[in-house]
Simulated scan of single mutants.
Amino acid sequence: MSVLVGLIVMLGMLVVVPLGLRLVDGPGPSRLSRWWPLLAAPGAVALWLPRGPAATALAAVYAAATLALALHAPARLARTRSLAPAEIAVLTALASPSVAGLALVAERSGHQLFGFDLEILALTVPHFHFAGFAAALVAGLVCRASADRPAARCAALSVPLGTLLVLVGYFVDDWAELAGAVVLTAGMWAVALVTWRDVRDERQDRTTRTLLAVSAAVLVATMLLALSWALGEATGLPHPDLTWMAATHGLGNALGFALCAVLAWRRLEETTA
């Protein structure tokens, strides 16, 4: 795992996920968020160890935490009995880190899970922290805050669907992955549009408005990069390589979108508490 990808994953594990869990209503995720940095620390250490038993064992601790989080999804569904768009997005956020946890265990053990090479497994880990968890969670928050407007409902449904289609594309072919990238991009751009148009408010303080604006604007560029990569993989057209994608698309989504968005929503929550 490259240094840059490792740093991006650490940001997701130790900062974005616990901050995001505090935004999920219900006692389970909120309680888990208090312990999350401690549970994630072994996984963070595993990123920097050579592949082998020690790294695998530490990664497995983190994977167990992600599975515990995923169990909150069916529990939440049983409690709310709702499949409204915002709820679908939140359920996706709760379940997605478990995919990252499983991929991390396989990659740290040197096992080509389902035949995927180790580089793809390494990139699956940040993808399901940021597209799977952060983007789905923010899409759900945007949907609730925007009174279920059509664009917000589109965001809350398209982000989970696009994330699922990208995962399915791993097993099918590059064209299926391209279809997933198109749907996911549409959902992310809908998140950006609704954030910029409806969530930002002149009554908010300057820092909150800036964080929301940055999180929305960054998505325009980063998701164009995602589309160009998926299109190139499917058609053979020139496109950025994975190293370049990690340094642009990956870093931009991690810092510019996910971190700014969860910080902004935390500030919004504090002002309305």
Rank of each mutant, 00 (worst) to 15 (best):
Y170A: 14
P160N: 05
G12N: 01
A44S: 15
R149Q: 13
A155D: 00
A247I: 03
L157C: 11
W48M: 09
T80L: 12
V159F: 04
V15C: 01
G250Q: 03
A95E: 01
A155H: 00
L268N: 00
A213V: 10
T248Q: 06
D148A: 14
T235D: 07
P53H: 10
W175G: 12
L118G: 11
A65F: 13
S98I: 09
E269M: 05
S82Y: 05
V90K: 03
V138F: 00
H239C: 12
D198W: 06
R76E: 10
P160M: 07
G52T: 12
P27L: 11
T235H: 05
L23W: 03
S109D: 13
H249T: 00
T235M: 06
T272K: 09
G232S: 08
A103C: 13
M245K: 13
W265H: 08
P53L: 09
L219F: 00
G20H: 04
A216E: 09
V45T: 12
L21M: 09
R81K: 13
T207P: 00
L14S: 08
L231F: 13
L47A: 09
A147G: 15
M1G: 15
L268V: 04
A106C: 10
H129F: 05
P18H: 06
P150E: 13
A59D: 07
A192Y: 04
L137G: 07
R81P: 08
V15G: 01
L123F: 07
V90E: 08
I88M: 13
L184Y: 10
A106H: 02
A246I: 10
G232L: 07
R34W: 14
F128Y: 15
A246G: 10
L251E: 06
T235C: 08
V5N: 08
F130H: 03
D241E: 11
L21Y: 01
W36E: 11
T195G: 08
S82M: 06
A186L: 13
L32Y: 05
G256D: 06
I88G: 02
G20N: 06
R22V: 10
H72M: 14
A106G: 08
L14N: 02
A64I: 11
